[in-house]
Amino acid sequence: MQMKGAVIAITGGARGLGLAMAQHLGQQGARLALLDLERDTLDQAVNTLLDQGIDATAYELDIADETAVSETFAALVADMGPLKGLINNAGITRDGLLVKVKDGKVEKGLSLEQWRQVIDVNLTGVFLCAQEAACRMVEAGEGGVIVNISSISRAGNMGQSNYSAAKAGVASMTVTWAKELARHGIRVGAVAPGFIETEMTAAIRPDVLEKVTRGIPLGKLGQPEDIAQSVAYIFANDYFSGRVIECDGGLRV
């Protein structure tokens, strides 16, 4: 897909991986719609991109709100023109063990609220945005590309029942949608990052993060730009669909 002039929506686009993707694709000529929760952070991100000569517009959105998603995508298309790409990047963590055992006493760990919060954003939000984007792309009749951000945790990770389940679901939906939408000229792919230097990994206890880093064959955390390059590859390769790119420094074997 040609990037120049293409309208690309990025959820969670105001910081971290999302902003790195916006900068990378924007440098190739894409016009970016940044979708995120916090207006101040959004405005700051858009101003940063504009200062770099990148066309970007901010849209405040809770991706777990079906009505808000529909209204935002309608406004986006009205403002910017036909949607050519969507990057489902927004995500949260609410970690906890399934059960806790202390001094021989067993108690519940991960709460139902923590479970629902992560599933609502990381799985349902991906579904809602992809469905709305696909509808807009089909109506425009020009095809398009949807890129979902999964995770190395989709294979299972201690303390992340909710996050792992959601990211495994994202990988499965990627394959499903690729099969369903191919007839409309829409490709769907995913990237599964490993441990990347973002606000999310910065919140990990230093000793734990050091242990994780030692276990990565390349011996270092990835950079947001590494994931941006993987996303850009999916957009660029017109024969790529229904697959997940794992970008994790060789951690998952």
Rank of each mutant, 00 (worst) to 15 (best):
G104W: 11
G104S: 02
K105A: 13
K105N: 14
V106I: 15
V106Y: 08
E107Y: 00
E107P: 07
G109A: 04
L110P: 11
L110K: 08
L112P: 00
Q114H: 13
W115I: 11
W115V: 11
Q117H: 13
V118H: 05
D120A: 15
T124E: 09
G125K: 06
F127D: 02
L128Y: 04
C129P: 12
E132M: 10
E132V: 14
E132K: 11
E132S: 15
A133C: 13
A134V: 07
R136M: 04
R136C: 12
V138A: 06
A140P: 02
E142Q: 13
G143S: 08
G144R: 03
V145W: 06
V147W: 05
V147D: 09
S150F: 03
S151H: 08
I152M: 15
R154D: 06
A155C: 00
G156R: 06
M158H: 02
M158E: 10
G159E: 02
N162R: 03
N162F: 04
S164C: 01
A165Q: 03
A168L: 04
A168N: 05
S172P: 02
M173E: 08
T174R: 00
T174Y: 00
T174N: 10
W177F: 12
R183W: 01
H184M: 01
R187V: 07
R187H: 12
V188H: 03
V191D: 11
A192L: 07
P193E: 09
G194T: 01
I196S: 08
T198H: 07
E199N: 14
M200D: 10
A203G: 08
I204E: 12
P206A: 07
